[in-house]
């Protein structure tokens, strides 16, 4: 952990919960917050997990879509939707001309793209610093009803759609995916808001009887 150069935006907010930490992708990461069975129960009730350490690649510009396609990336066709690559990496289309790609820990797609030089105009890499969370459990509707004004039950997250909205007063991107067979919500926000949003969500989650789970709960680091 001492060797990790990178730091999750949420790292210092974790400290209060004394997680078991480790190095993932060169980043100091909360691997677990409690015993596996406790975390399993939390994830069924209501839980939050910091996955800011997953590698991401952002790109923006009028030619961004073509450039990604040329690189062999399968793109979501409509604005504000997402798709998975065969290796499980997520590709999100934020608006029309901006894309965010996120790898699973074992993938290198984001890094490969980051290292690829852009030779054409109209394609601009976007340095990302997302705080990224996984929220799961049967009480997620109750959580979101307190922090988000829009209707998430009304199909707004179905069919691989994503929404850019305000969560607990912070601009965020939200989608729903199936992870390890479990339906979960994913949240990304500007990393500098990460500690705030983590604490705000965790506060409500704990009121509802849930709690934090570590990175290892979803991914084998």
């Amino acid at each position: 952990m001492q060797d990790a150069v990178l730091m999750s935006p949420v790292a210092f907010a974790h400290a209060l919960k004394k997680p078991v930490s480790g190095d993932v992708n060169g980043m100091q990461t909360a691997l677990s917050f409690a015993d596996a069975d406790v975390e399993a129960t939390r994830s069924k009730t209501l839980s939050i997990c910091d996955v800011s350490n997953l590698n991401r690649f952002g790109v923006k510009g009028p030619q961004a879509a073509d450039w990604l396609k040329a690189a062999g990336i399968k793109l979501p066709e409509t604005t504000n939707s997402w798709t998975s690559q065969e290796n499980g990496s997520l590709v999100m289309r934020l608006g029309n001309t901006e894309f965010l790609l996120e790898d699973k820990p074992e993938n290198q797609l984001a890094k490969t793209l980051s290292d690829t030089a852009v030779e054409q105009s109209g394609v601009h890499k976007v340095l990302r610093n997302d705080a990224a969370f996984i929220v799961s459990g049967e009480l997620t509707p109750a959580l979101f009803s307190e922090v988000c004004a829009i209707d998430l039950d009304n199909g707004s997250l179905e069919d691989n759609r994503l929404v850019m909205t305000v969560i607990a007063g912070v601009s965020a991107t939200l989608l729903k995916q199936t992870l390890n067979g479990q339906s979960v919500y994913r949240i990304w926000c500007d990393g500098t808001f990460g500690p705030y949003l983590w604490k705000a969500l965790l506060g409500i989650i704990e009121e509802q009887g849930g709690g934090p789970v570590g990175f290892n709960f979803y991914y084998n680091a």
């Binding site: 604005t79 004004a149 909205t165």
Partner: peptide, 10 residues
């Protein structure tokens, strides 16, 4: 026009 109907607070 891009994101659909949202509350004014956004």
């Amino acid at each position: 026009p891009i994101n659909g109907i949202r509350p004014l607070s956004e």
